[in-house]
Design a protein around this nucleic acid. Structure first.
Lengths: 142, 142
DNA sequence: TTGCTCCTCACGTCACGTGAGGTGGC
DNA sequence: TTGCTCCTCACGTCACGTGAGGTGGC
């Protein structure tokens, strides 16, 4: 697919995709099919979606996202080395590193969920109070 | 308290507080005690904390936060009018508007929580896979 | 008097948005 | 041939960061 479709399906803009490529967060599109147009596959779409999700949900900066990409590339490297002659010790080391990154991300996710749960509770409390006042006025509760 | 303490207790910087004042998101500090230094109270701290929370957790822009502030000022206005001679119809109207704003915010909060829950599930799944591979290697599960 | 924090410009930065002017595929 | 999307500059914008140079309270 071309950059317009990629961006729309990922929920962003072509400009953002080009910017991410410019700063090295996304690799330059593999083939620039005739006319210099960037061309992308489904794997590119999935990776972009995940980056945007981490950006929006966890508030990671683009520098931090670069570190995430590096960690994921390392995981991909693990899979590639999996059947090679790499030593079990080295494999375990890489897997442990991957576990560390996942732990960090899970910690961030849970922290955010806690904060959101607190916010939700406060909003519901306010909502109840407003509803109670409306009831006092003899109005129907919306 | 002065701007440095306010900012630190709210988890931000003096520059951000001044910027929010500059664009009209925060009112200019009530008293500029001798020397032109801004002075703040606990209510200012609470309001700032809430704005930062909405910014960080829901990703609202500063323009959107202005609308939130306007809605909250309207709620404060309701309380002020509560014992005045305002008509019940007018009061109900203001309360309904407040309910609408709360509904909107609750919708955003729940949407974010859903997205975070999905992300958490995916991260846990990856974690399990990595752990399984580590177990295959005969290594202790971290 | 010495630090510490505060003040106001004002330029820099991050993460893009938005034309300007031009080329390429159905 | 006409739209549509793409391309590369390059300047603009939002939300601040970061000194520059100076004043004020324990």
């Amino acid at each position: 697919m071309r950059i317009g479709e990629l961006a729309e399906r990922a929920g962003t803009t072509p400009r953002t995709v080009r910017y991410y490529e410019e700063i090295g967060l996304l690799p330059g599109a593999a083939d620039r099919s005739s006319g210099g147009h960037r061309s992308y596959g489904d794997a590119d779409l999935e990776r972009l979606r995940e980056l945007l999700r981490l950006r929006d949900l966890l508030g990671l900066t683009l520098e931090e996202l670069k570190a995430v990409v590096a960690a994921e590339d390392a995981r991909a490297e693990i899979r590639r080395e999996y059947r090679s002659t790499e030593s079990p010790a080295r494999r375990a080391e890489l897997l442990q590193a991957a576990l560390g990154h996942l732990d960090t991300q899970l910690g961030l996710v849970r922290h955010r969920m806690d904060e959101l749960a607190t916010l939700e509770a406060e909003l519901r409390e306010r909502q109840e109070r407003v509803r109670a006042r409306l009831a006092e006025l003899g109005a129907p509760v919306g």
